[in-house]
Amino acid sequence: MFTNGAIIKATETSLIVALIATVLSTLLGVLYVLAIDHMSRAGSELATALINASMLIPEIVLGVATMAFIRLIGMAPGYVPLVLAHTTFCIPFVVMPIRARLQTLDRACFEAAEDLGAPGFTTVTRVTLPLLTPGVISGALMAFVVSMDDFMISNFLTTAGTTTLPIYIFSLIRKGVNPSINVVATLLLLLAIVITVTSTVLTNRKSK
């Protein structure tokens, strides 16, 4: 399996897309949570409802919508549309743990920073973000797993040179089950389990 150039190429593509999508979705997710925290109660509830509602959108709808959009603006399928679609899909999975972490924090920490004269930016970088680290790590790991395992969105946006691992596995299954499929599927499952357990352990350890 490890000498199969097609599998290696598909794995590299999935890793590149997943890593970039993870970084972008994590940055946007953190900014989204911080923005929600400074909104009025009505605005915060609306923003939270919107991000929760986005998780109810079927992947096939997001895939078709993204494909239609890139055709509308004249962009060809490839890495850029794939990364943008994965990033959009992963943002809610990043927001949830960060938002949950923020709600458990003692507001006295922020009030103390303000009383000591810390500017808003300093409070965010020196107080808020360090306290949110467990949630950020958990969200980033979740985004990585979601992106690596995605099939539906990638199916609409991949090209011959940007085939992701799930798409390649599906193409092999159509030709008949072989040992390579079992090995790759097992490795993906183990990766998801390891990342999930690691995320849980880090979150529990740093939240104590």
Rank of each mutant, 00 (worst) to 15 (best):
L116F: 14
F89Q: 07
P58F: 07
V83D: 04
C109V: 11
I70G: 06
I91R: 08
A118K: 07
F93P: 10
V95S: 13
P77H: 05
G120Q: 10
D150Q: 05
M75P: 02
A76R: 13
S147N: 11
T48A: 11
S147H: 07
A113G: 13
L46D: 00
V127Q: 06
V94Y: 08
P92Q: 14
R99A: 12
T133C: 01
L50Y: 01
L141N: 09
M142D: 08
R107Y: 03
R101Y: 07
I98T: 10
L116D: 08
L141C: 13
Q103E: 14
V146H: 12
T88Y: 06
G139N: 02
L132A: 09
Y79D: 00
D149L: 06
Q103I: 04
A143N: 09
P134Q: 07
A65M: 14
S138F: 06
I91A: 10
L132Y: 11
F89A: 09
A47Y: 00
G43F: 00
C90V: 08
T48L: 12
A100F: 10
A85V: 05
L132H: 08
E111C: 01
C90N: 15
V124D: 03
A49C: 01
A65K: 03
G135L: 01
G139Y: 03
G139D: 04
N52S: 12
V64K: 09
V80F: 13
L131E: 04
T104P: 01
T66V: 12
F121Y: 07
L102S: 08
F93V: 13
A143Y: 07
L132F: 11
A65W: 09
G139Q: 01
A65I: 08
L116W: 06
I70T: 04
